[in-house]
Nucleic acid binder design. Structure first.
Ligand SMILES: NC(=O)c1ccc[n+]([C@@H]2O[C@H](COP(=O)([O-])OP(=O)(O)OC[C@H]3O[C@@H](n4cnc5c(N)ncnc54)[C@H](O)[C@@H]3O)[C@@H](O)[C@H]2O)c1
Ligand SMILES: NC(=O)c1ccc[n+]([C@@H]2O[C@H](COP(=O)([O-])OP(=O)(O)OC[C@H]3O[C@@H](n4cnc5c(N)ncnc54)[C@H](O)[C@@H]3O)[C@@H](O)[C@H]2O)c1
Lengths: 228, 228
DNA sequence: CTAACATTGTTAAACTTTTAACAAAAAGGC
DNA sequence: GCCTTTTTGTTAAAAGTTTAACAATGTTAG
């Protein structure tokens, strides 16, 4: 039937050119929709169909993918399994990533429990807290250690990402300690802007900020409704 | 000493022009830094000082504020309390906003507990769940009702925002029910893109997506390091 | 095997956002 | 009170992002 010429994943990357942040932020969305399609056993999809589902233009989708290579075929579209695989690779979801979490409070426990991460190669290996009542607990099969053991633990385990779910007041100190131990990626939920060296990457999750954005948009709607 | 002419908050808004989303998203950040300064009893700040703290350009800060009015004074800067007040007003943080939360699981409980929201005028009035073991509980002084009572409750209470922390599989159905009851704002934590009418605003919190972005950035760094 | 069709990857134009520059105006020192 | 300094709000230029257009190329049906 169809045989597909398939030079596959051209090393067509515009190397040495920085991939725009706007593009990077859309990749997880593509990943999610492709996972859905894959699960529904859809074998192929065109840029226009996928873009319509996501709510963007086909142009943007193709432009975004072209930063990384050529994964589709003219007249046919993309194979879902193949494209999902490529996007996963680009996102770094194929390697196992070791994480530690600091601050076993409500939010910390929710995140540890969130199984989706594990499926995608993110493994929380240890939890740290400074509350003696919590230290020693096992949460979702992961032990909670005293925060004083952080440095020791990191010396002897391969950990790529530190997750901070302590109160805001402790977050900078925790970040400093992680950085001193050589951690290069921090996933921060405390509402403070962490100061870290340039070679450390911080992703800040702005839970509270998005509620304010919602509140503001609601208000704008109300104003518009009343004054025109 | 200084007396300040003070025509204050000019109704200078470029009305009928849509405020860029990029601007809206920065306002909560300004709010946070201004709150900090206010707490530290700093009385005045210039655009360049504040921008430096935040990590943006002074130009951008002034440009952003100019969408809403003129709040500063040449040769002096901004009064922290005044600007904080203005930003809060713009964000709609001065009115009381009633919320209901659906899905009293781990994440839901963390969010209910998160006191910062209450301080900013967001009040969770009721919780709904479909698990009979949870219905009847009181979480942080807020009662958990059976999900079947949702419509009844919303008929008789003034609620502006619905928070969805159910599993992804239930999220669309919950959203539909909220919309049918006239809710215009949805704060969604489930990893699905909710379909709602145009007059309903959904803010989607992408917790998982930001971890993927972190993972990708880490990988990019690694690649860069190895190939040049 | 051929021709009509579908759909990509890419180039170029349009649009949006950010940064720079500066005149206008108030502050603060002398 | 006058002069120098500071700093705003705004206008203009630069940079970045999105959308449109289309040639190239593989697909599919006859
Ligand atoms: N809960 C939410 O929905 C939510 C939303 C947005 C942001 N946040 C932020 O996430 C963080 C955690 O929130 P939470 O609701 O889970 O709070 P929490 O109080 O339930 O948990 C904090 C945990 O950190 C531990 N801790 C405190 N200081 C520590 C230290 N120096 N070292 C190690 N552990 C320490 C505490 O013992 C506790 O277990 C806070 O910064 C909060 O502002 C939470
Ligand atoms: N936990 C996290 O860190 C995290 C991170 C990102 C996204 N999320 C998303 O947030 C949501 C909640 O996650 P969680 O970890 O709290 O899960 P959870 O299983 O702990 O909680 C879900 C709650 O929803 C209730 N529920 C289920 N179906 C319902 C229905 N039809 N009506 C009303 N209530 C219903 C359940 O009884 C349960 O109490 C999920 O969609 C998850 O994907 C969670």
């Amino acid at each position: 039937m169809r045989k597909m010429g398939h030079e596959s994943g051209n090393i067509n990357q515009r190397r040495h050119q920085q991939i725009p942040l706007a593009v990077i932020k859309r990749l997880p969305i593509y990943h999610r929709y492709l996972s859905d399609l894959h699960q529904k056993e859809v074998a192929r999809i065109s840029s226009s169909e996928l873009a319509a589902k996501i709510g963007i233009t086909a142009s943007q989708l193709r432009q975004d993918l072209s930063w990384f290579g050529s994964f589709g075929q003219q007249g046919y579209g993309y194979r879902v399994d193949e494209l999902l695989q490529e996007v996963s690779r680009i996102l770094g979801l194929n390697q196992n990533i070791g994480m530690v979490l600091i601050g076993a409070g409500r939010l910390g426990r929710a995140i540890i429990h969130y199984a989706n991460f594990k499926r995608r190669g993110f493994h929380t290996k240890a939890i740290f807290d400074n509350n003696p009542d919590i230290v020693g607990e096992i949460i979702d099969e992961i032990p909670v250690y005293n925060i004083s053991e952080l440095e020791n633990y990191l010396k002897s385990h391969a950990i790529q990402i530190g997750v901070i779910t302590t109160p805001a007041s402790a977050a900078q100190e925790v970040a400093d300690r992680l950085v001193r131990c050589g951690i290069k990626g921090i996933w921060n939920f405390a509402p403070v802007s962490l100061k870290v060296p340039d070679d450390v990457i911080v992703e800040h999750v702005h839970i509270g900020e998005s509620l304010m954005v919602l509140s503001m948009k609601l208000q704008q709607r109300k104003e518009q409704a009343s004054d025109d």
